[in-house]
Amino acid sequence: MEESNVIIHILAGGPAEAIPDLQAYKQRDVIWAAADRGVFRLLKQGIVPEAAFGDYDSVTEEELNWMKEQTSELHIVPKEKDQTDLELALNWAIKERPKLIRIFGATGGRLDHALANIQMLIKGLNSNIDIHLIDYKNKISLKNPGIYEVQQEQDFPYLSFLPVTDIVTGINLNGFKYPLINKTLHWGSTLCVSNELNEEKGTFSFETGILMVVRSTD
């Protein structure tokens, strides 16, 4: 199968103050989607989503009518359902088989929603698609065992590695201010919180478990 070059961006309905500047993420080969109030915010920025999911209980009737005028891609779903609006949008995105999915507007509000949205990153591991959850201070992803190269990023200089499974074994950090060799990380440990790259590039690797990688600003 030919590798996809498509990137899908999804804007959820979280607080506006936690959303980064979306104009910085406008690029070629990007498909935009949105969930609930994220649809309204995306349209207000002049970006028409190719898919939009929600019960739209966070917008007024006037705003909903305006949204209907702007796009024919509104999927209106029942308020009582087994999946959140964002999960519906993410499932649609995964079926499109992109090389990368970025999710915005998924943190900064209710903690239960934020935690559920972070947990949904597991769908990327299950489908072999890179998924990043990004807000104005953080970029979060999950990794299966392997060797990964990371580069310095001015916007996200700090890196933390958190266990998702009970135990993550064989962790190595090379090119970091605080290097590690063959360490084991247990659930609840803060050993790998707030590290930095010493060089332009570095690598991290681990042998078993699932690792959450969090890149953060100051």
Rank of each mutant, 00 (worst) to 15 (best):
T71N: 03
E69V: 07
A89Y: 00
T84R: 00
L74S: 06
L88Q: 01
I101F: 08
E63P: 08
K79T: 10
E73R: 11
E63Q: 15
K99W: 05
E96H: 09
K81V: 01
N91P: 00
E63I: 08
L64Y: 15
K79F: 02
K68I: 08
N65K: 11
A93S: 10
T71H: 04
E80N: 12
L90V: 09
Q83C: 06
E73T: 11
E61C: 13
Q70C: 14
S72V: 08
L90H: 02
W92S: 05
T60I: 08
Q70W: 07
E87I: 02
K99R: 15
L86Q: 02
R97Q: 13
E96D: 03
L88K: 00
K81W: 00
L74F: 07
Q70H: 13
H75F: 09
E62T: 09
I94C: 06
E73D: 07
E73W: 03
K79I: 07
I94W: 04
R102W: 06
E69G: 10
I94P: 02
Q70R: 14
T84N: 03
T84H: 01
D82C: 04
H75D: 09
L74Y: 07
P78G: 14
S72Y: 05
R97H: 12
Q70V: 08
L90Y: 02
Q70Y: 07
D85Y: 00
K95C: 10
W66C: 08
E63N: 11
D85H: 00
K79R: 12
S72W: 02
E63K: 11
K79D: 01
E61T: 15
V77E: 09
Q83H: 12
N65Q: 11
I76K: 14
A93L: 05
K95W: 02
K99S: 14
Q83R: 12
L64G: 07
S72A: 14
D85E: 01
T60E: 09
R102G: 03
P98H: 10
H75R: 12
N91Q: 10
M67V: 05
N65H: 07
W66A: 12
K81P: 00
T60W: 09
T71V: 02
L64R: 13
W92A: 05
S72M: 07
R102T: 05
K95N: 14
W66R: 09
E80C: 03
R97C: 06
L100E: 15
D82V: 04
Q83Y: 13
V77K: 04
L86W: 09
